[in-house]
Amino acid sequence: MTVTAELSQESLLRGYRTMRTIRDFEERLHIEIANAQIPGFVHLYAGEEAVAAGVCSHLSDEDWVSSTHRGHGHAIAKGCDVKGMMAEIYGRATGLCKGKGGSMHIADFRRGMLGANGIVGGGPPLICGVGLSAKVRRSGQVGVAFLGDGASNQGTFLESLNLSAIWKLPVVFVVENNGYGEATGQSYHQAVEDIAKRADGFGLPGVTVDGNDYFAVAEAAGIAIGRARAGHGPTLLECKTTRFFGHFEGDTQTYRDPNEAAEARASRDCLVAFRARVTDAGLLAGAALDAIDVEIAQLIDESVAEALAAPWPDVSELSTDVYIKY
């Protein structure tokens, strides 16, 4: 039997490395935030790694993603420099945005990362712009908007579904349905369980997959992105997933069963499942994954140390990078 190209050792290792980097980055921030050296709000992506890693495994630097307030995972999966990201979150001059953006505005246009976004539902219209540009220029690029279940109630999202469908834009809307819009459970904020259904009303296909399963996300995203690249128009891809931490760091999560996150970690951890399945299938040796674990732990240590040692932005930077000249 043949092994499909997507499951080459190289691509599997890349998928694991991406998820492990996101997990370690977020777990470390969870600890570091308590040291009160990080300015601003931080929203952690731990638990949802399979979505960003599975989707972005089909994208190149030429493709664009828009992100959310919970954007670290998308940035890492899209190839942003991890040390630059950490410095940015620490507000240091060596950060990806010179320390002036912070967690919720990390962007890196060289990597096709349009930016984390503090506006809930802010990404989809930006991605329609990406899609229109790519279509007019026939560039072959694809745009992916990540958004959450809460954002799926926003007019910006619904209008973007409509615009992308009538213009047949090369875009994919990836809804990371983690069951909560901030502190509001999904059943309190929408009457449907499958957000993919919202596609029906706008004339584009909608698909739901298990967002904790890297292989389910990667397969569905591969088809959706392939459709977009081939000129067949947009797709709404809903990934049902789990948030290990609160909405923001410091969230007491009184709206949630106290055992819920622990149960999710025990039964639906995308990294644990990935490791078990690729080693059971004989596709990767556990040692190769262990080596990545060691390497990433060191990278995150260095990222924090270098961020702490880096200078703050100079006061003279206060009014630069505010407006762009066309």
């Binding site: 039997m1 043949t2 092994v3 499909t4 499951l7 698909v207 997959v209 399963d213 292989f215 389910a216 990667a218 397969e219 569905a220 088809i223 399945r277 299938a281 596709l283």
Partner: peptide, 9 residues
């Protein structure tokens, strides 16, 4: 099936 994972089922 020669697919290795249940994936999108």
């Amino acid at each position: 099936s020669c697919q290795r994972f249940v994936g999108a089922r």
